[in-house]
Structure formats: C-alpha cells, structure tokens
C-alpha cells in the first residue's frame, strides 16, 4: 500500500503547529493519491504521549521513538530515525515542516536516502498519482512549479500556509514503538528561550511590524501596544534591526523570517523588495504609511495614508474595544 511519511516535530512534549499542518496535508495528499496510508514519525523523550493527537489529525500509523536519551534534537540521530522508517515503509512522499528543525533535518535525510527534496513549499498537488509542488523563488518575485523524478518525493512545507484539519478524536492511529542509536557528533548543550517568551513570528496568525517610520526605539511601544491589542506577534524591518532598536530575531524579510500570517499590519515600513520577500504571502496585508507612493501599498489589501503616530494609538484603542466586545 502506498504511504506518505510525515515528520511531526515536538518540543517540550508538545506538537508544534507546523507539524499538525504537515500531518493534515499528508492526509489530503494520501486521499488524493487514492487512499494512501499516512505514517507519522515522532521523536523525543516523552513523545509517545503525542501519538493519539497525530491520529486525530489524520495519521494512520505513528512511529514513536521515545527514549530518555532523546531529550534534545540531534540532527544525526533524528535523520537516522526518520531514515529507518523511510527505508522500511518506502513511502511515495515525505512531508516535513519547514521550521528551524525541519530545515536542518530534511537535507540530511535526503542525503541519506537519496530522495529528491523540494524546500519551503507553499502548495502541493497530486497529478497522475505524483506530487507537484509550488514554491516562491527570487524573494517571492516568481513562483516555481517543481516535480520529482523518483520516489520518495520529499518536501518541506512553509508554516501557516497549509490548513489544519479539524481534529477527529474518534480516529485512532496504530502506534509502532521504535529505537534508534542516539550517538551523535553534534549535540545541544543548552536551550535559551528568547527574552519575554514572545509569540513566535513564523507561527503567528497576526503580525504587527514596525519600521523606520517609528522614528526611534522610544516609540516602538506603539507597535508592541498595537500587537498586544490584536494578540499578535511583533515584527520589524531590517532598517530598525540594523539601527539596533530591536533584536534581529524579529526581523521579517529576505535576511530575516519568512512569514505567512492571516493578517500582517505594516507600520512605517516602506515595503522594500527584501521586506516583501518575507511577508508578501500573508493573506491580508494592512499598511499604515504617510507616503502614498510607498511600495508597501502595492501589496497591501487595506491602506491608511497617514501619520502612524496618530493612527496607531487610535487603532490600538479601537482594537481593544473590538476584542473586548467580541469576548
């Protein structure tokens, strides 16, 4: 029977949202291939507890590598584990989330299994039983349709683009307990959470970003306040990262994060091509800018031509009232 293998990334005993998106997509691909089996792979100490949830999202079989020595991600070990399953199951396709972990892991697995790998896909289709991927290239200035010449067809999936299946708690997956040699030449010795435990940009449904139009770091709270009102993550343009107002890990764009939220609000950002590269696949874009010719208005769905210092506090107030009324 044909199968689709999907890697379910977990951290701290929780499945990450991009993993659930990947399982959901694997289910859709499997169904489109005429009823292939979805085989999820979950690795890590305590990961056995996550098998049921993977079943709810569409996995038929969950391969579990649950051992105390698998407390931290290690490329070589995870690649060995995933390679073991791929070697046995011989899947038609392998789907991996394009997260920091998936980005690190997928090529290593491709090298070991000889699979063709297509990165950062934003859509998959099944044509004549084979996969076809769509992905952004040249900073989103073009889209490529890519095909594989053999199997397994391995793809990494951009976060926040593939929709989540509605979990079906009556679905139960079969679990297969597995073991792997945990020896690795490169090891994680510490994990330091970013300050403030802030919302992760690449997984956020709403992002409020600020740019040089905010004039100085002392005004950046306007961006943070607006983000808080929307329950959004905070992003930034490179100009203000380079100026040292904010940390690089919130930079959006070509040399920062690529994000695809439902809603992206750009405040005082001109919309340089390198910034657009990181956010133009957002579903709805709002631009607040005092220059009507700013390129950001070319990609925006809604535009407010005005002074961010006047508009943002009003929008924060209105959003607070809106979300309070909504409950």
């Amino acid at each position: 029977m044909k199968s689709i293998v999907t890697f379910a990334e977990q951290r701290d005993g929780k499945l990450r949202r991009p993993s659930l998106e990947a399982v959901s997509e694997a289910r859709r691909v499997a169904d489109a291939m005429g009823g292939a089996q979805v085989e999820a792979v979950v690795i890590g100490a305590g990961s056995g507890a996550l098998a049921a949830e993977l079943g709810h999202y569409g996995a038929d079989v969950v391969h579990v590598f649950d051992a105390a020595e698998l407390a931290h991600y290690a490329t070589e070990v995870w690649a060995r584990a995933l390679g073991q399953v791929i070697g046995e199951v011989k899947p038609a396709a392998v789907l991996i989330p394009f997260t920091a972990m998936g980005k690190d892991l997928a090529p290593r697995v491709a090298a070991a299994t000889g699979a063709g790998l297509v990165s950062d896909c934003s859509a998959l289709a099944v044509k004549d039983g084979k996969l076809e991927a769509r992905r952004a290239v040249y900073s989103g200035k073009a889209f490529a349709t890519v095909r594989w010449s053999g199997e397994p067809q391995m793809a990494t999936l951009r976060a926040n683009v593939f929709s989540l299946a509605t979990p079906d708690t009556s679905r139960a997956a079969k679990t297969v307990a597995r073991t792997v040699d945990a020896a690795s030449r490169a090891k994680v010795t510490a994990v330091n959470a970013a300050a403030g435990g802030k919302l992760e940009l690449t997984e956020a449904q709403t992002i409020v970003s600020g740019g040089r139009g905010m004039k100085g770091p002392e005004h950046f709270h306007l961006v943070e306040d607006l983000a808080a009102a929307f329950g959004a993550a905070v992003g930034a343009s490179r100009a203000i990262v380079d100026a040292g107002w904010v940390d690089h890990h919130i930079q959006v764009g070509q040399t920062g994060k690529t994000v695809s939220p439902n809603l992206y609000i750009a405040c005082g950002i001109s919309g340089a091509i390198q910034h657009l590269a990181g956010m133009s696949s957002s579903r709805i874009i709002v631009a607040i800018n005092k220059d009507g010719d700013a390129p950001i208005f070319k990609v925006a769905n809604y535009g407010i031509l005005g002074d961010a210092f006047e508009v943002m506090p009003k929008l924060t107030e209105a959003a607070k009232a809106y979300f309070a009324a909504k409950g």
């Binding site: 889209f143 769905n301 009003k314 209105a318």
Partner: peptide, 26 residues
C-alpha cells in the same frame, strides 16, 4: 531528482483599498 517544470510571476494582489477619514474613523 527534482526539476522546475515552470516558473511564473506571482499572482497580482488586488488593488489596495485606501481608508479615508480622521484617524479615529480610519
């Protein structure tokens, strides 16, 4: 193992809808 079958320009985004009025109305 993989080939680009075709390359296209991105789909055009709909024209921006500008919102008028004073900041509170906007």
């Amino acid at each position: 193992l993989t080939t680009v079958a075709s390359l296209e320009l991105p789909p055009a985004r709909p024209a921006v809808r500008m919102i008028d009025g004073d900041p509170e109305t906007q």
